[in-house]
């Protein structure tokens, strides 16, 4: 399977004021690492406005901001834990908001790969053992280890 987890896209504490701030800060790492084009962040923000990516799981809320493959240079998945929860709209439910504690930002070119990744993410974060590892990850090493183990 193509490598998608990279150290430079693991953030154990992202301090963001709101969803847009979180996406801009995290997206900047993707751009700096050469994973995406300079249109990526704006495209993610636009998409998040129309089709929010927040999810309330059993034990954690997260968000999965992303956009279409034309803005991507190399596939990658980033994991950032938020210093304080940030409000995102809930995917598929326009009336519900979630207080996301974690971001999974995805830069995926192949649509089939996106479907596969989303399936994997759902499998991971509905698994209480895996969820506990991510929640407990208090530093870079622990978060990178969890991301590599479950998403790499």
């Amino acid at each position: 399977m193509t490598k998608t987890v990279y150290q430079e896209l693991i953030v154990p504490e992202l301090d963001a004021g709101d969803a847009g701030d979180a996406i801009r800060q995290f997206g900047a790492r993707f751009l700096a690492g050469g994973f995406v084009r300079d249109t990526f962040v704006a495209a993610v923000l636009e998409r998040e406005e129309k089709y929010p990516t927040g999810l309330q799981l059993d034990g954690m809320a997260l968000a999965m901001p992303h956009t279409s493959g034309e803005h991507v240079r190399r596939p990658a998945v980033g994991v950032a834990k938020l210093k304080k929860p940030v409000i995102f709209g809930h995917m598929g439910d326009e009336e519900t908001k979630v207080e996301a504690e974690m971001l999974l930002m995805m830069a995926i070119q192949d649509p089939d790969a996106q479907v596969d990744l989303l399936r994997k993410v759902m499998g991971v974060f509905t698994n209480q053992e895996a969820l506990a590892e991510f929640k407990a990850a208090g530093d870079f090493e622990a978060l990178y280890a969890a991301a590599t183990k479950y998403l790499g």
Binding site: Y51, M91, V115
Partner: peptide
Amino acid sequence: SGLHARPASQLTA
């Protein structure tokens, strides 16, 4: 692109 996030969101809604 299959049922990725956007069409899946639309279908759920």
